[in-house]
Amino acid sequence: MERILEQIPRFFTFRNMELLLEAAGMTLAITSVGCIIGFGLAFVLVYLRQTPGKWAAPLRFLCIAYVEIFRRIPFLVVIYLVLFFIQAFIADASLFTIAVIAICTYAIAYTAEIIRGGLESVPREQVEAARAMNLSRFQTTTQIVLPQAWPVIIPPAIAFAVSFIKDTALVSQIGVFELTFRGKELNNQGYSGILVFGTIAMCYFAISYPLTRYGQHLETRLATSRGRRSARKLRRT
């Protein structure tokens, strides 16, 4: 206990705090880049999954299999798989790239389900009306379905990304300079584990808590704005 107290002034130096801030930036960077790319690719996956016709059955199967399999593999295993797979074929891929690809691989599987739920929440009649006017499947999705699905998709997608900030701690295993890796480094330099990991936990908390609250706020706002719209509708008819 005295050791911890005695270490405090040495630990909270400007240099160390700068390192932690940088590391927090890295945590945020890999999470947001990975999740945003993953979110985009998840749209493609869902779109392919909804391809009609007999010839597309294998394609639909692959899309379903991707989601089902990656939701059932630990993120840590995905990280190792991506790391060794990429290193087996590309010698000089940066750790940042590998971490982003691993996050992306995982985010696709989770956000695909969110997106599918959102798209399916739009009444089928809207699609029929569009198809009857000769809008293509792509036009129907982008012009009619997606604009109506956003309020259903966005809150859980943000909740996923925010929650995933914590899971990215696992990429410290392959040596990406993010928060957890810095923590282990400082611990190895002889700083107290309680002090270091307590501080790192607070760093995650400082990032995660406000974003979680913002996500909840967004969810209620979108829910009430839709509620208002349907209330207005009830009054008019």
């Binding site: 914590k166 701690a169 957890t180 923590g183 611990n187 990991f197 790192i200 995660s208 979680t212």
Partner: peptide, 12 residues
């Protein structure tokens, strides 16, 4: 607990 990583909790 829900705003910090499980990994950090276990490291602690």
């Amino acid at each position: 607990i829900t705003n910090t990583p499980a990994l950090i909790q276990i490291y602690f």
